[in-house]
């Protein structure tokens, strides 16, 4: 099997971070990223970026209590 190069690894960044690559591939990429000074920081940055997007976008939007009550009254 051909060894992964940086281009291969960078192309799969999203699938990898999303947990959407199969086990063998995952381990290959993981090993490369841990060693590689070029890919390592890029992977880390993308991981943090998605994490921050999620944290920020989830902040402060609970369903308003009045709306919740209105919804459940529809069931009566």
């Amino acid at each position: 099997m051909r060894h992964l190069d940086c281009e291969d690894v960078l192309r799969e960044v999203w699938s990898y971070l999303d947990g959407e690559v199969e086990e063998t591939r995952f381990l290959e990429i993981q090993a490369h990223v841990e060693e590689c000074a070029g890919c390592g920081p890029r992977y880390e940055f993308q991981r943090r970026l998605i994490m921050i997007i999620q944290t920020r976008a989830r902040q402060g939007y609970p369903i308003p209590e009045t709306l919740r009550q209105r919804l459940f009254r529809l069931l009566e």
Binding site: F45, R48, L49, I52, I53, R56, A57, Q59, G60
Partner: peptide, 10 residues
């Protein structure tokens, strides 16, 4: 990254 605020992301 630490500068990105909720309003930016939204």
């Amino acid at each position: 990254l630490s500068q990105l605020m909720e309003a930016d992301v939204v």
